[in-house]
Design a protein around this nucleic acid. Structure first.
Lengths: 166, 166
DNA sequence: TCAACCAGTTGCATTTTGAAACCAGAGACT
DNA sequence: AGTCTCTGGTTTCAAAATGCAACTGGTTGA
């Protein structure tokens, strides 16, 4: 059934799931952008993913156990994609990617403010964010603090400042 | 010159450099396996990289500023690949990948003992390891502690135990 | 009834990957 | 001097992945 693995090294096995140009982009958009529907992921994608690629990635990530697909009660055709617990545990990895990118790549200010806050907040902020994701995606009780809201507010503040400066 | 970037998001920009199935494998082998020559990377690769792919990845990583190529004084034809400071700062990212893989993928005990030690050691161990890498790759003064040696010793101990158990 | 919206699929050209054979220069050994 | 091995790769060609654009079949609300 499964293809054989190249090796049993943890870094390699992680790369076998996430080592391509789109999988983590999709997870990032679901996680930080709270995009839960196919069209949201397709049309509001900063990077412009193609619909066939998106469909293939969603399928692969479901097979890998990182996403689940559910029905949206508001619309018979609408599917809701949710993160699983393993996907939620990618938060520290994504934060490290953001940290490294912010330090060594030509990032923009508004798109890196979230990464900055998550880096500065450290593991306790990551935990709060993961608790919130468990509420949004796994039906856990809602925590008091909304890290997602804080990140979004910070993004909008920077975006407005930069717009005004032009 | 450069292709345009898909977006200025730090996660995306990191993926544009490292988001494929081989780049981080090459960096892992240089970093944790101390493989500095083409043939070492080729023949001692756990995953069996092809020579054309290895050559292409080394070239790309040099262009991205993550590797440098130097001469080996012992042999006119021999090239030594070294990590740059940005590549050394990938240590926390690779540790997170190891941590996630160890928790969610079917890793083997001997190939994940290093990841376990690095996870348990926390940021202070990562800093010691990065200091050692700066000595090995950038000519910095050698630190007292060799994390690389500790990791290798732990690997060999586990490998010997598992061999004896069979 | 009809336009907009929904999650994708299809066809096709281009690019990337992968396996294997091959190469020319440099050292080592006899 | 001749030859064997090691060096960092390149070449060739098939197969797979990617990317773009058009398209599909059904749903929903006005």
């Amino acid at each position: 059934m499964d293809d054989a693995h190249r090796s049993s090294c943890p870094i390699n096995l992680t790369l076998e799931v996430l080592g391509d140009r789109w999988s983590l982009i999709v997870i990032r958009d679901i996680m930080f952008g709270n995009r839960r529907h196919f069209r949201e992921l397709l049309n509001r994608s900063e990077e412009g993913i193609a619909s066939n690629i998106l469909a293939a990635r969603l399928k692969r990530l479901m097979e890998a156990g990182l996403l689940t697909k559910g029905d949206d009660p508001s619309h018979q055709q609408k599917a809701i994609y949710s993160l699983t617990e393993p996907a939620i545990q990618l938060v520290p990895l994504l934060v490290q990617m953001g940290t490294w990118g912010r330090r060594h790549r030509p990032v923009s200010e508004e798109l890196s403010i979230r990464a900055q806050l998550l880096e500065e907040g450290g593991p306790s902020l990551w935990d709060a964010f993961m608790a919130e994701l468990r509420a949004l995606h796994l039906g856990a009780p809602a925590p008091k603090r909304s890290v997602l809201y804080e990140l979004q507010a910070a993004y909008e503040k920077v975006a407005a400042q930069r717009k005004a400066a032009r």
